[in-house]
Nucleic acid binder design. Structure first.
Lengths: 242, 242
DNA sequence: AAGTGGTCTAGACCACCCC
DNA sequence: GGGTGGTCTAGACCACTTT
């Protein structure tokens, strides 16, 4: 599958080898990879070279080092998602807001051209469509339309809705054995149309942000395409430029 | 000014020393810093330690290495700005769209509480306010309100408007000797009010994105606060999560 | 050819974590 | 105490750029 190029420097080839092992789930997320000394002796290189390779992996976000404990396969940082830029209304100061999910629709459908393109599947492939709301204390935080390839996620169709729970990715893992590795997100804004207004919990014509997310597994294949709409007033994104 | 903490590892202290020199404009942006061997002998450390320090600076975006040529003080990457997420309408396929700036207002004003907070100045400090439009072929791309501390930017008040040109940051440098080092940006969306609609080139009530930008100099002091409004339909931002 | 950054080694010692 | 990652050294050799 993944070819290691001999012309690359050793630390790069070593990086590729370790990354391939992570992709193959040789070590599960949250588990340690072999120690630096071990990797050095396994691959017949100096520890400094192993460190360099792991430096690269750390920079790419694939692993994390913990001093004295080891180097861990990292779960993707979904706390950096644009979805986390939706301000959650504080009801009582200090009180933890409770986020609830409500699945409004669940169906097996053929992939439309748009869905097929996003999920990188042939048009007409069997898919699962979920329509969902995220709520905070009965108020709609956002509305979501979610598309999944049926081949990987069939259990989601038959399982009781309640057993899916409020977080989707743990359910992907628990019920379907699908691990999320990376995601690509895009952000636009629009005046919401009548067909989506109720789902997003706003009046027709109000400004909303539209967040598109394509999630990929460790095999780089698309797992999930999601389109989220939320009131623009709740959205606030910051970043630094250097 | 900047205190170097003895308890830090050498490569960190070295990083701080080099960063301080960059901040003090000892080496101008675009110029090289001393070679790694030179820095090693100057500071009495091994080359490996110098490399580590520079690795950190590269990661922070302060310098760039060029193999065989040297290590250069970098200009900030404003091509990553959210402003670059505003789609420019293609008029003729292949034709390069020409971006034009039009300064509509230029005045000396006292800092309001909001402006003062952003620019980290006392309320009432003398400031310069610019109101500007960016246009593509007579069509408004975005509208901007810009606030600058008068103490640093006084020449902008008296100079001919035409001599400011279409790009502000080169003018800051050329006319006022102010170099931009970093920026913090934030993004929200709203239905535009009547007071800003004309400037942004859209009808009242239409959805717009609002981009706030605070620019800082190498001394970390705020140089410019800018609030930009642009039609939401033109905005598209992408990112990857790992 | 000289100077720069890039790779790599082999080893020392330190700081942290867990048993 | 034994294992882990973190720092640091001194040096070799390579690859690239400029003179």
């Amino acid at each position: 599958m993944s070819i290691v190029d001999d012309r690359l420097p050793r630390y790069q080839r070593l990086r590729d080898l370790i990354a391939a092992d992570i992709a193959a789930q040789r070590w599960a997320p949250g588990q340690t990879i072999p120690s630096e000394a071990e990797l050095a002796s396994i691959h017949g290189v100096a520890v400094g070279t192993v460190r360099h390779a792991i430096d690269v992996l750390v920079g790419e976000g694939l692993v994390t080092r913990v001093h004295g404990r080891g180097t861990f396969v990292r779960r993707p940082a979904f706390d950096q998602s644009l979805l986390r830029c939706l301000r959650i209304p504080e009801l009582e100061p200090g009180a933890k807001p409770v986020l609830i999910s409500r699945i409004l629709e669940r169906a097996s459908l053929k992939a439309s051209p748009e869905v097929a393109e996003r999920l990188e599947l042939p048009v007409g492939t069997d898919c699962i469509r979920l329509v969902r709301q995220k709520l905070v204390e009965r108020r709609v935080l956002r509305g979501e339309e979610i598309w999944l390839p049926k081949a990987r996620f069939a259990p989601l169709l038959t399982v009781e809705l309640a057993s899916i729970g409020h977080d989707l990715y743990p359910a992907f893992e628990r019920l379907c054995g699908q691990l999320v590795a990376t995601a690509e997100e895009s952000l636009t804004a629009e005046a919401i149309g009548a067909e989506h207004a109720t789902l997003a919990g706003v009046a027709t014509g109000q400004p909303v942000v539209v967040i598109d997310r394509l999630t990929r597994g460790y095999d780089r294949q698309p797992l999930e395409w999601r389109r989220v709409r939320a009131p623009a007033s709740a959205f606030h994104f910051r970043r630094e430029i250097r």
